[in-house]
Design a protein around this nucleic acid. Structure first.
Length: 301
DNA sequence: AACCAGGATCAAC
DNA sequence: GTTGATCATGGT
């Protein structure tokens, strides 16, 4: 693979100013599909077709296509370390072309889903932000989830220049009452869940590095113990924070998908989750995301 | 005006 | 272990 250390490091390269780029024909990437497939909530399309969002305390603009990506820092520091953050965030080391062809071979439904969804990358997102975001997502719709999260950032996050705000740190959120969160950020009954889970983080009882070191089943048990986290939100957190790429979240859309596309009559989401994990194995997470994007596209979302 | 959205929680069985 | 009511909010 790597020939005696003379090869440049693969992944994002820093241009010394404010741009980070990756150019590699095996880098499967669609900004639109990646940012609009429901795995993240803070990236929005701009007039030029690029996507703007906040990452690691910086406001960035992302553009690209298969084989190429460019990240421009609009607000915040530009340092060499950020290229490593981007490698992790965009899961650069995973070969999505390879995984996609493996999934396509499973069945015709999956084959169509891959065709519709190719270019999605499973992001490796900040753990605390992912936990809080998916607590907000429960029994909620994507446009409103995004509004709630932006409000949380605007009211309790650090300003990083212009009108951009970072996702708040746990110490800050833990001092806000659930009632205030409900009133100010319109999160409804999820307010106390957010406050209490943020408290766990602030008290050091939800340390990502420690959780990462646990066995897979203990990771699941620990995250499931957070207030406001049930089976579905649990799987989203595992998948989108990079803790387990074989997670298989089943929401109303995935249930609909498995009923309509796979002909399964079951409506028990725990059973559907088990089925998905067994059927797709190690790649269940990516399969789920392809199918989620695909079924929503069929229904005009 | 009911119904829906990337569901979780608690009580009751 | 499984089922049902209840939980805010805003859009359709």
């Amino acid at each position: 693979m790597c020939s005696k250390g003379v090869k440049n490091r693969s992944g994002f390269k820093f241009n010394g100013l404010n741009e980070y780029t990756i150019s590699d024909e095996s880098f499967a990437f669609s900004p639109e599909k990646t940012f609009e497939c429901g795995q993240c909530f803070r990236f929005n399309r701009t007039a030029s077709g690029s996507y703007e969002g906040v990452l690691d305390g910086r406001l960035v603009s992302v553009s690209g296509k298969n084989g190429y990506a460019k990240v421009t820092v609009i607000e915040g520091p530009c340092d060499l370390d950020f290229s490593g953050y981007l490698d992790s965030f965009f899961d650069v080391s995973t070969d999505y072309s390879k995984l996609s062809s493996e999934l396509s071979a499973k069945d015709d439904v999956m084959k169509e889903a891959v065709t519709a969804s190719f270019g999605i990358r499973l992001l490796r997102q900040d753990f605390f932000e992912t936990v809080i975001s998916f607590i907000v997502s429960a029994n909620n719709n994507i446009p409103r989830i995004k509004k709630c999260i932006e409000s949380i950032c605007l009211n309790y996050g650090k300003n990083i220049g212009g009108k951009a705000f970072a996702f708040p740190v746990a110490e800050t959120l833990s001092k806000v009452s659930g009632e205030e969160l409900a009133k100010v950020c319109r999160v409804g009954y999820r307010g106390p869940y957010i406050a209490n889970t943020a408290r766990l983080f602030a008290e050091g009882k939800a340390d990502f590095e420690k959780i990462k070191a646990l066995s897979l089943s203990d990771k699941y048990k620990t995250v499931l113990s957070f207030p406001g986290v049930g089976p579905k939100v649990l799987n989203c957190i595992m998948l989108f924070s990079g803790l387990d790429r074989s997670a298989f979240p089943v929401d109303v859309w995935v249930e609909r998908m498995m009923n309509e596309l796979y002909g399964l009559k079951d409506t028990d989401r725990n059973k559907l989750e088990k089925y998905g994990k067994e059927y797709f194995g190690d790649n269940a997470g990516l399969a789920q995301q392809y199918l989620f994007y695909y079924i929503r596209q069929i229904h005009g979302k």
